[in-house]
Write a protein that binds this DNA or RNA. Structure first.
Lengths: 125, 125
DNA sequence: CTAAAACCTGACGTTAACGTCAAAGGCAAG
DNA sequence: CTTGCCTTTGACGTTAACGTCAGGTTTTAG
């Protein structure tokens, strides 16, 4: 069907991925080393990524921010790609969900304590 | 007024503080080294803490969980002890509050993404 | 053609809150 | 007295996601 290259087929180099996703090139190489990204190589050896690598990197950042490790993300990636999961993956998904929820609760409690002090000190000119 | 020692005056050793607060003795020494705790010393050199050290340690754990560093906690401790703050401390309080709030939002977003996948995979037997 | 900008691999550096081990002293029970 | 648990200081180890530097190749702009 695609006789000529379409825009969706355009491969981009590491710098463009990094800029578009707001991370460093070093980070992108690290993700690839951790098995989170795959790339083709140009004849000279430069990494070439598909456009959706940018979306992926943003997703990794979100998961990192939520406390998941590279390993965990790699183990759960198939869940997003294929939409299919085995029992082990479902257990991991729920475990991470529960952990994050607990963390949200902890942060909320800390937030309340800070707000409490802020309220008190604001009433003390 | 206090002719004899009251229960509130009882000094406890590091192990009791650690157990009561659910941390290691190593952690308690670390907090003291960071200027978060003060202790008297027995004639033989053992640390002796006041009872409220347990409450303090629990508080430190909560702040650590919220992403504050030892340094920040030390800088803000007077706000709790005295209830008084200067401009710099009020700015730090608000900055930490905002940072934690942003983190809560990030976590919530990640939580939503996980729940999304969980919902999909649960409907795929 | 040439200089700047971007890329490569490899490898050591960073950070924070502890963990862990070593070697030794202290303290109550029996 | 000695067994056993607790404590001391000091110092090196851990972890994860990169930062940073070195030394060399490639691509691009003019």
């Amino acid at each position: 069907m695609t006789v000529t290259e379409t825009a969706a087929d355009r491969l981009i180099r590491i710098g463009e991925v990094a800029r578009a996703a707001g991370v460093s090139a070093r980070a992108v190489r690290y993700y690839e080393q951790q098995g989170l990204l795959i790339s083709e190589r140009s004849p000279s050896g430069q990494r070439l990524y598909r456009q959706d690598a940018v979306t992926l990197v943003r997703f990794f950042q979100q998961m990192y921010a939520a406390g998941l490790t590279s390993r965990r993300i790699a183990e759960l990636l198939p869940c997003w790609d294929s939409g299919h999961t085995d029992a082990e993956q479902r257990a991991m998904l729920r475990a991470e969900r529960d952990r994050i929820q607990a963390k949200v609760d902890d942060l909320q409690a800390a937030l309340d304590r800070l707000d409490e002090v802020i309220a008190i000190t604001d009433s003390h000119p």
